[in-house]
């Protein structure tokens, strides 16, 4: 079995699913991260507690169980039709990583020195303006490396969607392995290389983000 002519084309059939799931769940998790991260800093106690509950539940339980819950349990409990598996995968991964990333958002905002906010107050900025012009632009820089790290993890997490019937890179690798058991080592090596190649641009971007984050922040 030739890794380039036999295995790679098969795996490549799942390439689109892996990449679209990654991009969609990354975007969804970023949105969740900012919403939940800011809610955690809100003055509203209910909002803070409620978001805290979301974060702890999704951080404290396993992604695969969450995925199965959405896929198997929710339709039975609430008697609803499932949206596509693709959407379920995106929601599960997005909610899970959104919970982790919201703590990154919250931590970065809190790490900006209080003097920054005070200087903005002394320039008569409103609380929104302080966030918009002073705190947030600095916090974003601090968040970027962690966002990069979690996005790489998310890429690897997407392999779980093969368990709810989505045909991603891992799914096609697994199918090949089941029909060519003797070639399992080679097939999985090519699968690993596939994920590594997908991760390379993310690794590069994370490095870049780290160097940007190093300058231009007061703390």
């Amino acid at each position: 079995m030739n890794p380039i002519t036999d295995i790679a084309p098969q795996l490549f059939r799942g390439f689109g699913t892996t990449v679209t799931i990654l991009i969609a769940s990354a975007i969804f998790s970023y949105i969740m991260a900012f919403i939940a991260g800011l809610c955690r800093l809100s003055k509203n106690t209910f909002l803070r507690k409620f978001t805290g509950l979301y974060i702890e539940i999704f951080r404290g339980t396993s992604l695969i169980v969450q995925l199965f819950w959405l896929y198997y349990a929710i339709p039975i409990l609430f008697d609803i039709d499932l949206p596509s598996n693709w959407i379920i995968g995106v929601i599960a991964i997005g909610l899970n990583y959104g919970a982790y990333l919201s703590e990154v958002v919250r931590g970065s905002i809190l790490s900006i020195a209080p003097g920054q906010s005070e200087a903005a107050t002394a320039l008569n900025m409103s609380s929104f303006q302080r966030m918009r012009f002073v705190i947030f632009p600095q916090a974003i820089r601090m968040m970027m490396p962690e966002f990069g790290n979690y996005t790489i993890q998310m890429l690897k997490g997407t392999a779980l969607v093969s368990l709810i019937g989505l045909r991603d890179v891992f799914y096609y690798g697994d199918i090949m392995r089941s029909t060519n058991l003797a070639h399992a080592p080679l097939i999985y090596v090519v699968v690993l290389i596939f994920y590594f190649i997908l991760a390379l641009p993310l690794i590069f971007l994370t490095r870049k983000a780290e160097s940007i984050a190093k300058k231009g922040v007061a703390n």
């Binding site: 020195a113 003097g115 920054q116 005070e118 200087a119 903005a120 002394a122 012009f133 002073v134 632009p137 600095q138 820089r141 231009g216 922040v217 007061a218």
Partner: peptide, 11 residues
């Protein structure tokens, strides 16, 4: 106001 630690916006 001017502060002890300047508090310039570094970005």
């Amino acid at each position: 106001m001017v502060f002890q630690h300047f508090n310039l916006f570094p970005h």
